[in-house]
Design a protein around this nucleic acid. Structure first.
Length: 478
DNA sequence: ATGTCC
């Protein structure tokens, strides 16, 4: 692949063949070496073929192979002329992370970490098919969750109204239509609100290990030595079903609209087509379900912490720092060549990273910028970064979403055979509670790149800047 | 990611 360096930490494949724009990769040389051997670079070039793509087909330092579009991919399509593609969002619609801070010091936890992890495991159902965190939603409540997102959870006693201000899009995408969902998607979602799921999803108790940007860390409420909780989950079976339904429905639409697809997994239709409108209405509803899901789990985790550690809500100081979507398509306005342009930004395994001063950044963070949450693996650190003007100018206000896989799930399972991953992690000072040893092997640290390298690559290119490092103490997995 | 093959 013809890859030329176009800036610090930025690489480009010039358009060839049917590519309408270049593919641009944000990565260090070391991380570029890690993606050789998978199809993600070819996939980034494939995305550049799609009608209405604006600027470039972008990929973040944690990129790896995904369904059609690379994970770690960002692609913006003109709101009038462009397409929408379920593969550009991913199967887990609004998979995302939510970071909570506390007034608790890790040094004060003593030997209660194991108890805390097991209490969270009891209160937040985890694993494939997990359900029953709260009562199965009635048809009417499900409609309200799909329409109102995190606000539904707050209305029903899960968290506080100010949590919404600290959630991307205030935890609700407008234009969601519950009627755009299949019966099957609804049935899968109704019993699953407040559940973690499986795979790379987790609830992790951490300590603020080091602060790199004191001003931003102070604004985010992150104090060195204090306890944080990071939650990673999505829209569960409901979002999966929305994606599956849309992929099946779009193949015929793509043919009818004569959209040339270098890979059938890129199936896409015009944003304004009936199939496009229906997917967007359903995708937004699934995104709202995911925000309600994380909002409910946050409240369940706070209750678990109070139960194990005692004290009051006031002394615990458990508050939402921020919640970002990792898999989503959003209509946004961006400046290009001095002109404002409305685009549908697909972020698949990528986070929004808006700069200081942007009206969508919460008032409390407006002077420093949007928190960008970069989860690491179970054994190594996660990072909090902050969005920049450079991201706004170059990547439609986007940055990396995590460490990025290094091994396939299958390869990781093979590498973990006969090993006790939980014990290995305990020897590194991390208490792990996992439902399935298979998932634990798939998720072991060596299956991932080091998030520190991803953050260093973000720093080098300047699309997000490091604020704090969070070290894992206890993890609940599916 | 996913009632991991309706």
């Amino acid at each position: 692949m013809d890859l030329e360096k176009v800036g610090p930490g930025v690489w480009q494949v010039p358009p060839t063949g049917g590519m309408r724009v270049p593919a641009r990769i944000y990565a260090s040389e070391k991380l570029l070496a890690a993606i050789r051997g998978d199809q993600s670079l070819v996939q980034a070039c494939n995305v550049a073929h799609l009608p209405g793509i604006v600027g470039a087909s972008l990929a973040m330092p944690d990129m790896h192979e995904g369904y059609g579009f690379p994970i770690g991919g960002v692609a913006a399509f003109d709101a009038e002329e462009g397409i929408v593609s379920p593969g550009g969002v991913g199967y887990d619609i609004n998979c995302g992370v939510r970071l909570m801070r506390t007034d608790l010091l890790a040094a004060e936890l003593g030997d209660s970490m194991a108890k805390l992890v097991h209490q969270i495991q009891r209160d937040v159902p985890a694993g494939v098919g997990s359900q029953g965190a709260i009562a199965t939603l009635s048809e009417r409540d499900l409609d309200e969750v799909l329409r109102d997102g995190a606000a539904w959870a707050v209305r029903h006693g899960y968290g506080e109204p100010e949590d919404l201000e600290h959630t991307e899009a205030t935890g609700c995408l407008p234009g969601a239509d519950p009627r755009a969902l299949s019966r099957r998607a609804r049935e899968r979602g109704a019993p699953q609100l407040g559940t973690l799921g499986s795979g790379n999803h987790f609830a992790e108790v951490q300590v603020v290990d080091e602060v790199f940007d004191e001003r931003a860390a102070a604004a985010f409420g992150l104090v060195p030595g204090s306890v944080t909780v990071l939650l990673h989950s999505g829209s569960r079976g409901l979002g999966y079903q929305v994606c599956d339904d849309a992929l099946a429905a779009m193949h015929e639409g793509a043919r009818r609209h004569r959209i040339a697809l270098p890979d059938p997994q890129l199936v896409a239709v015009p944003i304004s087509s009936p199939e496009g409108k229906r997917y967007l209405a359903a995708m937004r509803a699934a995104a709202n379900f995911a925000w309600a899901n994380r909002q409910v789990m946050m409240a369940l985790i706070e209750r678990a912490m109070l139960r194990v550690l005692g004290g009051s809500r006031k002394t615990l100081g458990f508050r939402l720092v921020y919640d970002v979507a990792h898999n989503i398509a959003k209509l946004e306005e961006h400046e290009r060549g001095g002109k404002r342009q409305r685009v549908l930004v697909h972020r698949k395994g990528a986070t929004r990273a808006f700069p200081a001063g942007h009206p969508e950044v919460p008032v409390a963070y407006r002077k420093v910028g949007q928190p960008v949450l970069v989860p690491g693996d179970m054994g190594r650190a996660s990072f909090v970064c902050v969005g920049t003007d450079k991201a706004m100018a170059e990547t439609f206000g986007s940055a990396a979403h995590g460490a990025g896989r290094m091994m396939s799930r299958h390869a990781a399972r093979r590498a973990g055979a006969g090993r006790n991953i939980a014990r290995e992690l305990e020897q590194r000072g991390v208490v792990v509670a996992a439902r399935s040893p298979k998932t634990l092997a798939e998720e072991m640290p060596e299956a991932y790149k080091d998030a520190a390298e991803v953050v260093e690559a973000l720093h080098e290119s300047g699309i997000a800047l490091p604020v704090a490092r969070l070290r894992p103490l206890g993890v609940v997995k599916g």
